[in-house]
């Protein structure tokens, strides 16, 4: 058995270890993507609603 296969086998516990790492990667990536979408959508909505906000945000003098 090659070194890679031994690694992937995880001493016979591959069926538990890889799903555990997989779900962590999936949930954390999913939350990150959802949060980025939230920021972008709210940025766009704010600029649609108030075109002056873009200028104000650039100069940083907004109250």
């Amino acid at each position: 058995m090659s070194g890679m296969e031994t690694f992937l086998e995880m001493g016979g516990h591959a069926g538990y270890i890889w799903p555990a790492y997989g779900i962590v990667a999936l949930v954390l990536a999913g939350l990150w993507l959802a949060s980025r979408r939230f920021v972008r959508a709210s940025n766009a909505e704010l600029e649609d609603l108030n075109p002056r906000a873009r200028r104000k945000r650039g100069s940083g003098d907004e109250a």
Partner: peptide
């Protein structure tokens, strides 16, 4: 660190949402 990263992103979105509510 991931928590801080995503928290700041989400707070940015929440601040935008607050401003949107105020404009509306």
């Amino acid at each position: 660190a991931y928590f801080v990263w995503v928290l700041l992103m989400r707070m940015r979105g929440e601040i935008n949402a607050m401003k949107i509510r105020a404009v509306r």
